[in-house]
Simulated assay, not measured.
Amino acid sequence: VVERLVCSERTDTMLAWIGSPTDAFKLGEDGLKKQLGEGAVARSVSTYAMVRRLRPGRIGGVYPGFVDVQGPNYAAAKRIGRWRATVERAAGRQISYNVGPMSLTASVTDHRILKTAYDGLERLGMPPLPSDLSASIMAALLVWDLHTPDAQRYSDTFLTDKAVDCGMFSSPYEPNGLMEFAVALGAGSSVTGGVKGLVRRSR
């Protein structure tokens, strides 16, 4: 409603949204990684994927990025913005829609399971970014969209053209299936780090 009222008064208004890599997008079948992480981590995740029968990272060219722990409200909120971006673009309005990276925001670092999962994802080669770096990247993309309106106006893949997905889009497995493994991996890192810290302090 607010967007509609503002746009009715200012016809030159540009609307902007930040999308999430934990959403579903049509990406095609190209660009999937063959493995995640290195050495023992890569071997472990391959074994885990076979045992747990993880779904692939693309299903019919669609990336199934939803993650259960984030819940339906998060998915709905992101989808509302994405829908508005699609509708306003079709109506001829200049819009900015960019998928932002996984970020170490306060809401994430205060959520024990998410924080542990993010630690594990970093070891899998999909590192979340510091929140200030993410903000700078997204601000730069917004400025670019302001100065190049035709880029999104005439693109059939405008939702993901400039996605900063931290490697999620090229994962061979869907994010939801990987989260349990990432939590275990992140928890192991925390325990190892804690033990090392105790050893250093004892010395």
Rank of each mutant, 00 (worst) to 15 (best):
L124T: 10
S107K: 13
A184F: 10
M138P: 05
A140V: 09
L36E: 02
T157W: 07
S189A: 08
G177A: 05
G81L: 01
V67S: 10
R82F: 06
L141T: 13
P72H: 02
E38Y: 14
R84I: 10
A24L: 15
V2W: 12
E174I: 00
A106T: 09
Y48S: 05
A40G: 09
L133Q: 09
D132S: 08
P175Y: 08
R201E: 08
V199A: 05
A139F: 01
D119A: 08
R53D: 09
A117R: 04
A151D: 12
D150W: 12
R58H: 04
Y97K: 01
D165W: 00
D23G: 03
T116A: 09
R10D: 14
A140F: 03
R153G: 06
Y63N: 04
G28Q: 05
Y173R: 00
V45S: 01
D12S: 04
K162V: 11
M14T: 13
G125N: 03
L32V: 05
A49V: 00
R123H: 14
S190T: 06
V69P: 06
T157Y: 07
R52E: 09
S170K: 04
V99T: 04
P127R: 07
Y118V: 02
K26E: 11
L133N: 15
V164F: 11
P128Y: 03
H111A: 09
A106S: 14
P127M: 07
S46L: 12
L141K: 15
G60H: 02
A151P: 15
R82D: 10
Y63I: 03
S134A: 11
S103H: 03
F66M: 13
D119N: 07
G57N: 01
D161H: 04
A106L: 07
L159A: 09
T157P: 06
G60W: 03
G194H: 01
E88Y: 13
A139N: 01
F169V: 10
E38C: 12
V6N: 07
G193P: 04
R53G: 06
G197I: 01
I137L: 09
D110I: 08
R52T: 07
G65L: 02
H147S: 14
G120P: 05
S103A: 11
S96L: 04
R89F: 00
G120L: 02
Y173T: 00
D165R: 03
I18V: 12
G92Y: 03
T148I: 14
